Amino acid sequence: MSKNGRGKLLNLIRNEYRDAVDQRNLLIIPTVEIFRKSGSHTLVIENVPEMENTLIPDPSVQWEFISIIDYIKKTIGLSFSSP
Rank of each mutant, 00 (worst) to 15 (best):
S82I: 12
Q62A: 07
D58Y: 01
D22I: 15
Q23M: 12
D22N: 15
N15R: 15
E50I: 07
R14P: 01
D19C: 14
G77D: 13
L27W: 10
S60N: 13
N4Q: 15
V61D: 05
L27Y: 08
K74M: 09
E16P: 10
I29R: 02
Q62V: 00
W63S: 10
V61P: 05
I29F: 03
A20R: 11
S60T: 12
V44R: 11
S38V: 06
D22W: 12
E52G: 00
F65M: 14
I56Y: 06
L12D: 02
P83M: 04
R14Y: 04
I34G: 09
S67E: 01
L10N: 13
K74W: 07
S82T: 09
S81A: 11
S2V: 07
K37W: 05
S82A: 09
K8S: 09
V21R: 02
N4P: 11
I76H: 02
Y17V: 01
G5K: 15
E64C: 09
I69R: 05
N25Q: 11
T31W: 02
F65W: 11
Q62D: 03
N53V: 07
K8E: 08
I28N: 09
H41K: 15
L78R: 13
Q23T: 15
I69E: 03
M51R: 02
L27M: 10
F35W: 03
F35L: 04
F80A: 04
M1T: 12
S67D: 03
N47M: 08
M51V: 00
T42K: 14
P59A: 03
R18I: 04
F65S: 14
L10S: 11
E16A: 13
Q23P: 12
T75M: 03
A20F: 11
L10V: 14
F65R: 15
V21Y: 10
Y17L: 02
L10G: 05
L43F: 06
S79T: 13
I28V: 15
T54P: 03
A20K: 14
E33G: 02
I45W: 00
P30I: 05
K73Q: 10
N47Y: 13
A20Q: 10
D22E: 12
S82H: 01
L43S: 08
E16S: 14
S38Y: 00
L10I: 14
